[in-house]
Design a protein around this nucleic acid. Sequence first.
DNA 1: GGATGTGAACGACTTCACAGCG
DNA 2: CGCTGTGAAGTCGTTCACATCC
Lengths: 225, 225
Amino acid sequence: MRKEGDPSERATDGHEPRLSRASVGRLSLYLRHLEGLLHDGVHKVSSSQLGDSLGVTDAQVRKDLGSLGHLGHPGVGYAAAELIAAIRRALGIDREWRAALAGAGNLARALLRYHGFVSRGFRFVALFDADPAKIGQRIDGLEIHATAAIPAVIAATRAELGVLTVPAESCQSVAEAMVAAGVRGILNFAPAVLRLPPTVQVVSVDLTVQLEQLAFLVQWNGGEG
Amino acid sequence: MRKEGDPSERATDGHEPRLSRASVGRLSLYLRHLEGLLHDGVHKVSSSQLGDSLGVTDAQVRKDLGSLGHLGHPGVGYAAAELIAAIRRALGIDREWRAALAGAGNLARALLRYHGFVSRGFRFVALFDADPAKIGQRIDGLEIHATAAIPAVIAATRAELGVLTVPAESCQSVAEAMVAAGVRGILNFAPAVLRLPPTVQVVSVDLTVQLEQLAFLVQWNGGEG
DNA sequence: GGATGTGAACGACTTCACAGCG
DNA sequence: CGCTGTGAAGTCGTTCACATCC
């Protein structure tokens, strides 16, 4: 009944990108692959090389990269370092992002210890849990606060993003508390659909849905071995 | 350069569903919501009620449900119990799925302890890790085996699905070992793109990509607060 | 020659709108 | 009269194919 948070307006400077969700996902993959190439001393890459490594057509790669500006050199390919800078800028990850994490369970531990986030400029600056027994404990040096402390701690740490690894029952209220405290985007791992004002961006990672996707594919398209 | 594992052939009986990926994801959401409704004693639901709860248009809901057969009652709505049965069958989760988990870290712990999987018929039957120090230990009663044991253990447990929470460097080789041992679908959490034969179904949950999606949305579409 | 950039064709998914049924 | 089911229209994203440039 209501529309999705589709490509909307809002400019910040010169030419901001107007990219589809799918395109953003692929750019993220290109970025990681390009960093690997650069690390291996490869400085030039063509759309077909990039596509082959990632299971994407060369035309698709060119369309995606073309939307960032004229970065390619006909007959040669793309310069890895240039592409990396352009993609980081387009994705908005050419700066640090401060994130607050709610739900101090195993998934939270996994996220806190995953170094891939830090290397991309994502920093966890606050941690919350509803369990009184956990309050005051630390995970990786980050103190666990009560959910009642969300307003104060989010304000103090100036977290812009919220990551939810809480149970389904509490995700809506925790999300609302975070939004009220100033958080502008939420990454939701709880198995429930969040309903938030359209000014707040939500990305959901619903593990049950993903596993069921896989079961469906195997059931109906699976190899006939 | 190569095509995706798109909607393909393969029949098993009467009328198997020909559903898009997006549609399967929504059906999974409908299913969970319907189970909640039934639990609350609600037995009938209309497409607009269902859609409103999940942020989907009523027309979309009808299209999705229509593809499962004629389940609706004009002027009345849908019977929750009927829908649940039909969706479970369409998704292929009207039976048990046996899964093997590789990478015994915090993410693995989170998945093993998540009850939502068990209640949907997903059962973890094997656990692997590359770290010799972990071999023989148990998590939630499940013994950790060496990755060298993948062929024997997968064969013995008859796992059909593989879940990868290993580092990016090892995901390709672990996936190949699992596939060689008979696994027909892989849920990949490693931050890398798997290249496997098209007879093997792959669903990837790339947490870095998801976080970067969120950063992009907040950066460019975010509320102008 | 080799690779980019891009309109045009194509295909997939979503929304509209309304006939039809209980 | 309310709500489903569904062709038709519309929108969005991908692939094709080729002019263009180094």
